[in-house]
Nucleic acid binder design. Sequence first.
RNA 1: GCCGAAGUGGCGGAACUGGCAGACGCGCCGGACUCAAAAUCCGGUUCCCUCCGGGGAGUGUGGGUUCGAUUCCCACCUUCGGCACCA
Length: 747
Amino acid sequence: MERYDPKAIEAKWQGVWADARASHVPDPGPGADRSKKSYVVEMWPYPSGTLHMGHVLVYTIGDVISRFHRRNGLAVLHPIGFDSFGLPAENAAIREGGHPREITERNIVTISESMRRMGWGFDWDRLLSAHEPSYYRWDQWLFLKLFEAGLAYRKASPVKWCPVDQAVLANEQVHDGRCEYCGAEVVSKNLEQWFFRTTAYADELLDELEGLDWPDRVKAMQRNWIGRSEGAEILFSVDELETDVPVFTTRPDTLFGATFFVLAPEHPLVDQLIERSPNAAELRDYVGKAAVKRGEERAAAEEKTGVFTGFFATNPVNEARIPIWVADYVLMDYGTGAIMAVPAHDERDLAFAERFDLPVVTVIDDDGRLVNSAQFDGRPAEEAKGAIVDWLGERGRGKTAISFRLRDWGFSRQRYWGCPIPIVYCDDHGAVPVPYDELPVLLPDIEDYKPKGIAPLASAVDWVRAPCPTCGKEGRREVETMDTFVDSSWYFLRYCDPHNEDAVWDRELVDFWNPVDQYIGGVDHATMHLIYARFFMKALNDLGLIGFREPFQNLFTNGWVQLGGSKMSKSKGNVIGPEELVEEYGADSARLYMLFIGPAREDMDWTDDGIDGMQRFVRRLYRLVSEVAERAPAGEPPAGELTRKAHETIAKVTDDIGRRQSFNTAIAAIMELVNELSKAGPEDPAARFAAETAVSLIQPYAPHVAEELWQRLGHERLWEHAWPVADDAQLVRDTFELVVQVNGKVR
RNA sequence: GCCGAAGUGGCGGAACUGGCAGACGCGCCGGACUCAAAAUCCGGUUCCCUCCGGGGAGUGUGGGUUCGAUUCCCACCUUCGGCACCA
């Protein structure tokens, strides 16, 4: 008998599937049954040069699920595409020369070929790449829709600015407050930046998490990210300026304990205070320094810092005049950018009070009741919250309020390799959207992508010059590009109608396939991507472009595949990548091993220590089934151990893949069946049934060798053969063991 | 600090609903085949004791509930992940 030859077998069946278009799904016809569809999407990859083990994990999980669904009679849409805009290609181009487009497209060719060799059954007819004008044209189209709806807008936002280079700097380009390139002291500058109004959906993003079949930890991370806090907004007055300043607090019950007042350095009132302050110079210096610090630097500071303004605020509840400080531990973009400081009941305020010798007044005792709080003394704190807010409300000095830590999504990037924002600036008309019929605004070729001046696109002078769409007078194009998270917020919609040149999509197609039934990807996208995509669906639904509000009904988050963990150094140390793995062992063994190594949702340390064992198993299966094909008797399998084991395995594997998504244990179960078959031998009257069952069950994992063996067993087209069903009657055992315990011991 | 996940043999892990802990695999030990090796096959492999019949301990630690706990409850320890001056 010839040896198991994965290369030959895999090439053969990959050819057969390509010819048969086995992974292609046609558009649903009229009256197609939505209950018989399954939409399986893995997060699309960034086209780096080669596949890595993380890719092998994600796409093998998706392939197992989609093959399983297909054989369960569902119409499965399982597409692939590339998240091909973004920094790595741009940086590679800067480093090595060449155009980001060339590098990207070369990588796409290489990686697609590797994907085919892994046997992943994608519908290649629907291939998308974000950097192609046929895709990003619709990024622009969607941007215009959101812009019209007021969900995309510009606002001045502080950026780090190098006054010498006249350039916006990324956080990483600032070292010790100095420009990475010229060493000049970096200043903060308010620049107009583009934002999506994600905060408009803060409540829905939180509430609609409930209905999703997502891992709890991902939901928890999103809740945390959205950060809804209930509290109150309270007005303090600044008599010298005849103005009121609102603060947000979750602890209105501690209002009588406010002993000082703090403004964020960026607070608009600070400028007014500086002009009339005895500490003007010191304040100006402090505000300037705080502006160029990163948030983390502020948080990491060992001691709190701040400057007294010389002004006082009046506490509305007791008319106490408390000093107003400016301190960078108060953030402008949360709450109102101003706080009442209650050192007795807030750690941070306490640290500040100790540093600057400010008074501490306890207003809640050990029993949780108010003290030093006038008419509210003796009330439990929880109850006092409402009572104090009501009291303030009657006097127009306070009201209940909700604050979110979720911020609007800033999506302008001062980078080249991204989707141009279709806006023309006109001296008379401001930011004017490019008309729909002029899309796409093509990304021009330029000489130099280095982020040394302002955005690299500014150097494409001919491109920048454009007539104002409103008046025709010469204007200039937006030179910033979109964050690549824009591309990935809706790509799964475009897969449903990828070649449509007249519209972003056909609503019926998108509504048929979506929401995605199974989304698969790393937990590293738990917040950004998975929040942005959810925001997009809510906005697009409100715009009447789609008929649903959540993109991903079921989410599987795979663990990290760690290379060279603590274990690696001990063993051989020669870690091999996916390409070599396939070359040496074949795609089937690689796929099986990747999912067998441990639970796919948990992090794992990649070692190739066990891959030989997996190859051994596949060879054993191959030999055993080949023998069965030649020698096993035909006909109905008689009831007995082996027949029952086969039925048990069907039940177990079906449940493991379908309900539990426990991919490693399904493989173990098939191994048990093969072990039993091996013991019974190829001439056992149930051998043929057991072999057919094993081959059929392993097909989602190891589709090539399964197809080959299926053919040897005298059948064809396993990929569309119905998934086996366990016979309940065969699962009943004639005898069973009854465990008897006496005094807690088995007897 | 807050939120979340997890601690089981030499290793990766299994035990799904409270019912024989260690499935499946790696590694290791022994054997068969072979001139020899590879490949393959068979047997063993949690730890301790053993008169070889078996006996005892055991799922991070300490308690608890239960006839019975890896599983449920309380407290603690450790590791990993996320958020983090969010008022």
